[in-house]
Simulated scan of single mutants.
Amino acid sequence: MSSFAFTESIRVGQIGVGRWGRNVLRNLAASESAEVVAVADPLDPALAQASRIAPTARTARSATVVLEDESIEAVVVATETPLHVELAAAALEAGKHVFVEKPLAQTTSQAERLVRLAQERDRRLMVGHLLRYHPAFQHVEQLVKDGVLGEIQYLYSVRANLGVVRSQENAFDSLAPHDLAIARSLLGDAVAVTATGRAILQTGIEDVVFATVEYHGGAIAHLHASWLDPHKVRRTTVVGDVQMAVIDDQEPSEKVRVYDRGVDPSEARFGDVAGALAVRSGDIAVPQIPAAEPLRVEVEEFLSAIREHRAPLTDGVDGLEVVRVLEAARQSLAERRRVEIER
């Protein structure tokens, strides 16, 4: 295993410069904490794009240029999901820290392998659960942590759009990891999944999925993921027993609204129907959310975790738990039943 004495900037190599990978590369190249040494992608247009973003980096079609460079301290894997495990494992075995775009892997056993490798080699393993670095979601996470919303009863999310249609994973695998990562941060680990969906455009690949995920303590999350929808929707609603919050990433400015609304079962008003519960409808607060690019925050977290020798916010275990739910959802879709998550 290689041992690195960190230079002023962490030397980074990236594998994959596709639609999202070039955004990651842009933020790496702009960071004062990173030096992009090499970039690999099998497509020449992608490499040309990489050269414009990081002009001092070497480019190559083969990932071995990144994996075999002993001076590279950290590797970013931004490829299609089926390649994540092979490339991340090779980088960890070479003694490098690894950032993997979501999802960490396709199966629980694959994700467990990566977590184990990172632990054995004392390397940082981070997953690109981007919403955990979004200022709007971070604000609501803090509200939950501070008890402002009370005990969380349930949440639901809609992540729908027309495209991008993928051929190697269904809409839930592609879109839901973001919302599952948020649900885990608010509700803990999942215990069961019930999913239903339809494969409309391609046989065996669901274009729309509705899933209900159960958590320890009784809370639930209902997730709607679709790439075959007339509207682009990116909305999450969190319902507590004191207040409720809605995060709408499509809103240009007012991305978070906090509703002072709820039901008081101990309070009945004069003239109410016998047994009726009193509904409280208070103010709606629109907090000011600081402007920050989530991807920039995410990249800096990876670099800081390496430098500070600590687990990143969205570490390998976080990625593993999301993969557990994804795998259980696929089983539920195939068998049309509720699937418990085993650990």
Rank of each mutant, 00 (worst) to 15 (best):
S2Q: 14
F4V: 12
F4E: 15
R11V: 15
N23P: 05
N23H: 13
N27C: 09
A30I: 11
A30D: 13
E32Y: 00
E32K: 14
E32V: 07
S33D: 15
A34M: 12
D41H: 11
D41E: 05
D41W: 06
L43Q: 15
L47E: 05
P55T: 10
T56W: 05
R61P: 09
R61A: 15
L67T: 07
L67M: 11
V75E: 13
A78R: 00
A78D: 03
T79I: 08
T81C: 07
P82F: 06
L83D: 14
H84Y: 09
A89I: 00
A91P: 12
G95E: 11
H97M: 09
H97E: 09
V98A: 13
V98Q: 07
F99I: 03
V100S: 05
L104M: 05
Q106R: 11
S109E: 15
R113H: 12
E120W: 00
M126T: 06
M126A: 14
M126W: 07
H129L: 15
R132M: 13
Y133D: 00
Q138T: 12
Q138N: 02
L143A: 10
L143R: 13
G147D: 10
L155S: 01
L162V: 07
V165H: 13
A171W: 05
D173R: 04
A176H: 05
H178L: 01
A183K: 04
S185I: 00
L187E: 04
G188R: 00
D189T: 12
A190T: 06
V193F: 00
G197M: 09
A199W: 05
A199I: 06
A199D: 10
I200T: 14
G204W: 10
E214L: 01
E214C: 03
G217T: 07
I220Q: 04
H222M: 14
L223V: 11
H224V: 13
H224S: 08
A225Q: 01
W227V: 07
L228K: 15
R235K: 14
T237H: 14
G240N: 02
D241Y: 10
M244E: 06
A245T: 08
D249R: 07
Q250L: 04
Q250P: 03
Q250G: 10
V258Q: 04
D260I: 02
G262F: 06
V263A: 12
S266V: 07
G271R: 05
A274F: 08
A274R: 14
G275I: 14
A276F: 03
A276E: 13
A276C: 09
L277C: 01
G282Q: 13
D283T: 14
A285G: 03
V286C: 12
P287S: 15
I289S: 08
P290Y: 11
E293Y: 12
P294R: 09
F302G: 02
S304H: 13
H309L: 11
H309T: 11
T314Y: 08
D315K: 03
V317C: 06
V317A: 13
L320M: 08
L326A: 03
A328Y: 04
A328S: 12
E335G: 03
E335Q: 14
R338D: 06
V339K: 01
E342Y: 02
R343I: 03
